[in-house]
Simulated assay, not measured.
Amino acid sequence: MEEPLDLNGNLGFFEIEKTEGAYEFFNNNIKYINLFDFYYFLDAIEDSNNDVNKELSDRKITEILYEYAINDA
C-alpha cells in the first residue's frame, strides 16, 4: 500500500524479485509498505468466501484485513 497508509489508499502489487521481500519498497519515487505476505493474502481471500465470512461485505473484509495488517501483523 502507498504511504501514507489509509484504508482508501492505493495498492500496488510487485513481484518478489523486484521487492526482494522488503517491508518498505520504492517504485517511481512512491513508497509502498508491504501489508502481508502474498500467500497470507491469498489465504485471506479464500477464507473470505467460506460460509462464516460470505455474509460480510467486501468493505468489511477490507476493514478487517487492513486492521490486522496495521495492528496485529
Rank of each mutant, 00 (worst) to 15 (best):
M1W: 00
M1Q: 09
E2I: 12
E2R: 14
E2W: 06
E3R: 05
E3A: 04
P4I: 07
L5F: 06
L5M: 10
L5D: 08
D6W: 00
D6M: 03
D6R: 07
L7A: 01
N8T: 11
N8D: 13
G9E: 07
G9T: 07
N10L: 13
L11G: 02
L11E: 11
G12M: 09
G12T: 04
G12K: 08
G12E: 12
G12D: 09
G12Q: 05
F13E: 12
F13V: 15
F13N: 10
F14V: 12
F14K: 12
F14T: 11
E15N: 14
E15M: 11
I16W: 13
E17F: 12
E17G: 15
E17L: 12
T19K: 11
T19P: 08
E20K: 15
E20P: 02
A22G: 01
Y23Q: 14
Y23E: 15
Y23N: 11
E24W: 01
E24H: 11
F25A: 07
F25W: 09
F25G: 06
F26S: 00
F26E: 05
F26P: 04
N27M: 10
N28V: 00
N29V: 03
N29F: 02
N29M: 02
I30P: 02
K31M: 12
Y32E: 08
Y32M: 01
I33D: 00
I33A: 09
L35G: 12
L35F: 15
F36I: 02
F36D: 04
F36E: 05
D37S: 06
D37G: 03
F38G: 13
F38P: 01
F38N: 09
F38T: 03
Y39V: 12
Y39F: 12
Y39P: 01
Y39S: 14
Y39Q: 14
Y39L: 13
Y39N: 14
Y40F: 08
Y40K: 03
L42D: 02
L42C: 07
L42G: 03
D43P: 04
D43Y: 05
D43S: 10
D43F: 06
A44D: 09
A44K: 03
I45S: 05
I45C: 02
I45T: 00
E46H: 03
D47S: 06
S48G: 13
N49R: 06
N49D: 04
N49V: 05
N50M: 06
N50D: 15
D51M: 04
D51H: 08
V52H: 02
N53Q: 06
N53L: 13
N53G: 07
K54N: 10
E55R: 11
E55S: 15
E55P: 00
L56W: 13
S57I: 02
S57T: 15
S57E: 10
D58R: 03
R59N: 02
R59Y: 03
R59M: 02
K60E: 00
I61H: 09
T62P: 08
T62H: 14
L65S: 05
L65V: 06
L65E: 08
Y66N: 07
Y66D: 04
E67P: 08
E67C: 05
Y68I: 01
Y68N: 08
Y68A: 05
A69C: 11
A69P: 00
A69Q: 01
I70T: 09
N71F: 15
D72Q: 14
A73S: 14
A73F: 14
